[in-house]
Computed example of a mutant assay.
Amino acid sequence: MKSKDIVIVGILLGIGAIVRYVSLIAPGPITSNLVIAFYSLAIILVAPKVSEALGIGIVAGIICALISHSLFPPANLISEPVGALVAVLSLKLIDQFTGAKKAIKVKADGGSMKKDNPLGFVITAIGLLGMLAFCGIMFLSEVKPLIKGTLLATQTNQIIFGAIAVLVLLVGLYLIPRTLEKYRAAVVSLLATLASGTTFIVVAAIIIFAMPGILFKTAPAMDVFILSSMPIVIGCAIINMVLAQILYFPAKQAMR
């Protein structure tokens, strides 16, 4: 990477570390990891090689492991490099699919990019509404009485609902490549967070059940642990998606 790119990555990871520290006021064995939004944004802005993205993920993992009150901080040393790799690979796939780089090369004002399918906007809107509903179910106590006695009353169905909403959103974005290019920061951060969070849970689960007594005096049931953790991952993915996209446009302008 160029020295300018290194500075950009350093600034964003530094801001992420500060946000991470402030977020520790929220109790719990697994907390939202907003650092992912910042290293995803760094990867989008500097477009590093895969090896360089892995390095960014390792540094982010060290930051998350050092500033943490989660049940097993060393898991971040694995989960964040995975998240960074997913971020850079997602970015490359988006660029390839949308034809954005080719459009820039020919200076055709996006002429080489595929056109948006109107149906994609409808599907994307449904996915976004589903994700907002999921956040309401997870984090707003006022919503709990409304879903009592429905299919969404169980935690398993809530996770399935959240996963379906994410998939619907991705399908919708697939049909609108021009819009996908514009909002790629949100998509990259969303996928990176899901990959990182799932990896963290898997690593923690292995430690809990392969080495009982290390993290908990009495290990919880596997399904209970996963069911209690996945809503946090999906919720954090949605938050990071919004945060990364909000920061993307001003950060891009600042680089010019």
Rank of each mutant, 00 (worst) to 15 (best):
P118N: 07
F134P: 07
I104W: 08
G61N: 02
L146K: 10
L119I: 15
K105D: 10
F72E: 02
D109P: 01
L132S: 15
F97N: 12
A103M: 08
L89P: 04
V86K: 02
K101S: 07
P74C: 02
F121M: 13
L77C: 09
L66P: 03
N76F: 13
F134N: 11
L89D: 00
T150V: 15
K107W: 01
A103F: 10
P118E: 00
G111H: 00
P118C: 11
P118V: 03
G111F: 06
G110T: 13
E80K: 09
K101P: 03
S68N: 07
L77G: 04
G99L: 06
A100K: 11
L132P: 06
K102W: 11
G83W: 02
A65L: 01
K114V: 01
F121K: 10
I94W: 05
G83R: 01
I62T: 00
K101G: 08
A108F: 01
A103E: 05
L140E: 14
L77T: 11
A100W: 09
S141F: 09
I123D: 13
K105M: 10
L93M: 09
K144A: 15
I137L: 14
G99H: 03
S141E: 15
L85F: 11
K102I: 07
K114T: 01
L91R: 05
M131W: 09
